[in-house]
Design a protein around this nucleic acid. Structure first.
Lengths: 249, 249
DNA sequence: CGACGATTTGAAATCAGTCAAGAGCAGTGG
DNA sequence: CCACTGCTCTTGACTGATTTCAAATCGTCG
């Protein structure tokens, strides 16, 4: 199983952060793993579990989230093809939040120990994984800023802009046309809004001529203007050019 | 300068995540650095800069934050004695948010390259730093949950509970008695509330007999009850026992 | 066609924000 | 020693964005 190219989406993702050599890529491909097809709503990791494996999303979508005592759910991130949705679990011993599919999804499970070994053996791979974790953190922070300090309309526009970029980088759509991977209820839990209000904001953006929608299909009619409305700037995604392997001056 | 024990608070912090050998501790102590006393409000790193050093807080307090286009500020974290406030800048090349003191503070600046070298040379130190980054991430997520899905009273109580624990772990107070390190305006920017509303919540918690206040001095009268009110559970702080160095089964 | 989940719409309720003003406290300089 | 300045905290009255509750419509799939 490890000899198929199953894990190549993970290589594509990590390669965003710096060039990997053929040897390093081969080492990733050969990581021991089992891949399984999960149904919509299956958990990759549940809060409080002590996971033995890390899950790489090969197709479909997964979210990270946590439930407050009042029953409210906050979604922290959306993961798509190539993302190691719970790399942190290679190090932390107890999961502090849930990772759950929101569509049918193909997920490869890699043993914690294998992640640690490859990171010990290949400094460049380690650095790419470290970088990846930190970019995730940057996206988390932007979501927090979104939830904490932007109003509902801006928040919604911001998320659409982010999805456009990230889905196109992952090869799942274009910046201006993509299928929304979440229901409006899930969008609400990501934006900390009620689904009702998410709907009103989407309707509003459409009636302003910023987007067009057909079911979940989103067409951003004027990306620069939506980005301005959404207070969106790509820098927090850290997509600009080489990251790792530059000697770290 | 590196030969003084200036950086020992950093050792204390990293040691929370697993046992370090004497050699590893010595390597940390000997990290090249310059320490400076910063005035309240000085920036350790500013968004968009390409930092050459990472800042370790030796005394005083620093926050990480970002400003939205509408002028709103979201504070993501509070850093205190021993924290490497911007470890991420050892890897990322462009700062995606600000790190700023909120009191007079003594800060040691360690070159990026030195952080990378020690992490390459000492797997245990690397793992402690990785762990530290991930615990930071866990705290971020809890703050996001707080801001997104808890109401103002619960949110405020939650933050007080967290401060009690973290300040006592850092040796800066006890779990139930400590000096609040932030103004109510700053608390507002951490909780995504207006300062006025923070004030009302604090007054409310005091009038309920949950806390007592004299100026910034907080006395939590009934910690378990405040924790219940604040939907607070320490698990996200990952303080329970050994983390790293357990072989990673 | 029928059923179920997702989306849309409307009206009323509410939590938190806004605006404004006063009180407390620390530091500065006359 | 006191007046002045500036910042933080406190309080009240009013406003408004978002939630809540409820019901209708849409879309997909068996």
């Amino acid at each position: 199983m490890p000899n198929s190219k199953m894990l190549s989406p993970m290589i594509d993702k990590l390669s965003l952060w710096g060039k990997l050599t053929d040897e390093e890529k081969a080492a990733i491909i050969e990581l021991p793993h089992v891949s399984r097809t999960l149904a919509m709503g299956d958990f990759i990791v549940r809060e409080d579990e002590s996971p033995t494996h890390c899950g790489v999303v090969l197709s479909g979508y997964a979210i990270r989230h946590k439930i407050a005592g009042n029953g409210g759910r906050q979604i922290f991130s959306l993961h798509m093809k190539g993302d190691v949705a719970d790399l942190h679990n290679a190090v932390l011993r107890r999961a502090d939040h849930n990772v759950q599919t929101i569509t049918t999804a193909r997920v490869a499970f890699i043993p914690r120990a294998a992640i640690r070994e490859i990171s010990a053996r290949y400094p460049n791979v380690r650095e790419a994984m470290w970088y990846d974790t930190l970019v995730d953190g940057s996206i988390f922070r932007e979501w927090t800023l979104n939830v904490g300090r932007r109003d509902a309309r801006v928040r919604t526009a911001h998320l659409l802009c982010e999805f456009g970029i990230r889905l196109s980088v992952a090869g799942l759509g274009s910046k201006t046309e993509f299928e929304l991977p979440m229901t409006q209820e899930q969008l609400g839990d990501a934006l900390a809004l009620t689904p009702v209000h998410v709907n009103r904001m989407l309707m509003g953006l459409a009636s302003e001529g910023l987007i067009q929608r057909h079911v979940r299909e989103i067409h951003i009619l004027d990306y620069p203007r939506l980005a301005r409305v959404g207070d969106f700037d790509t820098r927090y995604l850290h997509l600009d050019g080489a990251g790792i392997g530059d000697g770290g001056g």
